[in-house]
């Protein structure tokens, strides 16, 4: 399903590129070194979000930062999505779930924690 989508995407982009090349003959990009930031796709699609961004409800560190027990952000300190739509640093949540007082509940809404299969999109 996904593969198909991808191919479809490619198909839609390619013709558009071709079209651009026709009318944009003048400027040819040889090499482009750009700078970008990565963000977790938390469903918060605010393009103007240049501030600190959302923070983990447990450690209060931004999602793009890392949980207190990690040193490297990103794939080394991933997020976890609950079915309750709440998002945390995975390490933070697992530690929380591991404590007795958590009663296996989401710390935000006290509903039983169920990890979402895929990110909420």
């Amino acid at each position: 399903m996904e593969m198909e989508e991808k191919e479809k995407d490619n198909e839609t982009t390619r013709p558009s590129n071709a079209r651009l090349e026709v009318c944009d003959q003048r400027v040819k990009i040889k090499k482009w070194h750009a700078i970008a930031q990565w963000r977790w796709d938390t469903g918060n699609n605010d393009p103007e979000d240049d501030g600190e961004g959302d923070v983990c409800g447990i450690c209060r560190v931004p999602f793009e930062g890392c949980c207190p027990s990690c040193k490297m952000p990103g794939d080394d300190c991933p997020l976890i999505w609950g079915e309750c739509t709440h998002v945390f640093h995975m390490h933070c949540l697992l530690q929380w779930i591991g404590t007795a007082s958590s009663k296996q509940q989401c710390p935000m809404d006290r509903r039983p924690w169920v990890t979402a299969e895929r990110k909420v999109d």
Partner: peptide, 24 residues
């Protein structure tokens, strides 16, 4: 990028970097 890292997305900083180009 999004396909490679499904849970991440890119946020461009368009004014940074350099572009080498030809103007025909």
């Amino acid at each position: 990028f999004h396909q490679f890292k499904p849970d991440k997305k890119l946020h461009w900083l368009p004014h940074l970097g350099t572009i080498s180009l030809d103007i025909e």
